[in-house]
Design a binder for these strands. Structure first.
Lengths: 149, 149
DNA sequence: TTGATAATGATAATGATTATCAATGATAGC
DNA sequence: GCTATCATTGATAATCATTATCATTATCAA
């Protein structure tokens, strides 16, 4: 991670504002953690009491469009989560959603190459993108032998 | 399909109402088609001008809980879609979402057995459920050589 | 420094879904 | 068949995450 290189925000066609920088700082400092817009808002607020939630939403959207943030919604009816897009350029990674503790981790590899070929063969469907989430119990939670204390 | 058997709605702990029956009739008559709550509402309205959309939402929820309907949302920011759950008991089928015509078809087989094993091995994550959607161009749309007319 | 214009913060609007509540309908027991 | 009970309905208000609006402020190239 060339820290000097990513330290400064410089998006094509977007001005560099204090608020935008703060939002990106929070997201970077929470590497590997999936946050809702409101959670990001609360973290940023610690650095800038005056920031508005609309600004957070606006910047999240821009960062998403720029491929810096990845959006995901893990359960129906819940709020969208965001994470730093570590594998920039490739959207092909998967989520492991723990149903006990709620933690969401990532499976970096793309596992669907052969399956997409099968879909093409049997259905004539030409896949250009996909979404794959796994729901289950994460390693940590499995260690707790008593499911509910 | 034992039509006589499924013709009559008889849900455990739920009364059989005209509205509920009409909603289920619509869903059954649109086998293989994914509909939003509002689309279902509009179809049912043709048979019962007085029905309210809240009734549709309420019954969709019940049918979903009973495993008769399957809910899916295919793109961020879009409305939830419902389909008749043909493979009752097994939630393990996948969606093929055409990015050109918007049609959503199903891939009946569960393709993830070995992948889940890999997830368990590399991440120690015990999968109990999953969700897999493919986005791309369906067979019909591929036949149209000119992408945009 | 200045002018053009993008970004901000406050807040209203949106839109899908849920909750509320009085009126109605279904059904078991008589 | 009648009635009492209680789920269901329809109308509509409420909710809640997200967007749009708009006057004000900040950024940045010239």
């Amino acid at each position: 991670m060339k820290n000097s290189e990513i330290k400064k925000l410089n998006l094509e066609g977007h001005k560099s504002t204090r608020q935008r920088q703060l939002i990106l700082d929070v997201i970077r400092s929470k590497r590997g953690i999936h946050m809702t817009a409101e959670e990001i808002y609360n973290y940023v607020k610690k650095k800038d009491e005056k920031i508005g939630i609309a600004t957070v939403y606006r910047n999240i959207k821009i960062l998403e469009e720029e491929g810096i943030l990845l959006k995901a919604r893990f359960k129906e009816g819940t709020t969208a989560c965001y994470e730093l897009c570590e594998w920039s350029g490739s959207h092909t990674h998967h989520h492991l959603v723990c149903l006990r503790c709620g933690k969401v981790s990532d499976m970096e590899q793309d596992l669907l190459g052969t399956i997409e070929a099968l879909v093409a063969d049997t259905k004539g469907f030409k896949t250009t993108d996909h979404r794959l989430d796994f729901y289950g119990i994460c390693g940590e939670c499995q260690k707790e032998t008593e499911p509910k204390g």
